[in-house]
Design a protein around this nucleic acid. Structure first.
Lengths: 192, 192
DNA sequence: CCCTAATGTGAGCGGTGCATACATTCTAGG
DNA sequence: CCTAGAATGTATGCACCGCTCACATTAGGG
């Protein structure tokens, strides 16, 4: 565990920048996430982060990748092995809840013209994608898994954004959960 | 139609700014939409737009409001009075197509922590929302219209974003249309 | 016809991303 | 152990941004 014994070399600026970026995101939203602010918070010169991240986009992508991994963990925690429509509804509720609990992070993850060339980001996204696909495949072996998996993901993803943007009323969390559950069941309750 | 006869007073700077903002959005994405760039394009000093828009957010909201109205028109054009699941699928395809045809505009409309206090923006959103609700109500008088309307909107909205972000492959437009149609039918094809 | 309100200008402040040249420290290989 | 060179952090500077304020110009109603 490297430690900043003296002053010049920080020790682990890379992860410190990531943590600072996450904090700034939660505090001031996406607009507050500037490389300079990150550097200030890390107690380091304005250009030091460039040693670890090529540009702002690279840092944002790293934050987003972390977000994808946390989202995957959050979904897995919602239900260990979802099989019934009700189980899937619970996972869907967890998805929307994640978005509403970390709005700025969720926006960074999905609402920016992201760099597809970023490996870390791409693999983290693929993990989420395959998680959803596998989940649907296990729950509905009969149906076309691709169409159905895409549909669930899109459904909860759209709900997340509409609630996030205030297009739907998100003031009462339990009401939101009921609505999301109802929507997922509407999609799955009648599958063959 | 006021005309800039002499130089000092522009004539109709307000709408000129809107047009310039739209152009910049299409050309350079959301990042390129700066008040200064708008002013440059309008051939006017950097601070002139502030006479017509309180801040950048106000201009963005105006652009977004225009986008909502265009989206509503685009949907209405897709099918005059949708009634069957297939009709609804066509409208859904139109929704996603709008997003993919105007990615930056769509992001401005939905992917920014928008100002809910902006009247023009709010009413334009309400129009879209009520359009979808009425559409579902007419197509499925039996079902709970609120749940179902929310579900369709969220479904196509989520699809739009996932395609926009490259989370789903959007390289072949007709394949996208098929997928979107299939997803909508999966949701509606089995309603009572 | 002139006075006021509306509209456009200019300079300037603090912030940002990023490139460049430079300083310091860590770490291998001799 | 000692020293090159790689890695890391610093300082400076440029161009751009949003926004404020004092000022110039003009349109249009009394």
């Amino acid at each position: 565990m490297p430690q900043a014994s003296s002053s010049y070399h920080h020790g682990d600026l890379r992860t410190t920048c990531l943590r600072a970026a996450r904090e700034l995101l939660e505090e001031d939203g996406s607009a507050g996430l500037s490389l300079r602010a990150v550097a200030r918070r890390a107690g380091v010169s304005a250009t030091a982060p460039y040693r670890h991240y090529a540009d702002r986009d690279a840092l944002v992508s790293a934050v987003a990748a972390e977000g994808y991994r946390e989202l995957a963990a959050h979904l897995a925690a919602a239900h260990p092995s979802p099989a019934t429509p009700d189980d899937l509804a619970a996972v869907g509720v967890a998805y929307v809840r994640f978005a509403l609990d970390h709005p700025a992070l969720f926006r960074v993850m999905f609402a920016e013209p992201c760099d597809p060339a970023n490996d870390e980001r791409a693999t983290a996204v693929a993990a989420v994608s395959e998680y959803v696909a596998g989940l649907v495949r296990r729950a509905f072996p009969g149906a076309d898994p691709e169409v159905l998996a895409t549909a669930v993901w899109a459904l909860v993803h759209g709900l997340a954004f509409l609630y996030l943007d205030g297009k739907l009323d998100a003031s009462a969390p339990d009401v939101v959960a009921d609505r999301v559950g109802a929507a997922v069941r509407a999609l799955f309750g009648t599958q063959p």
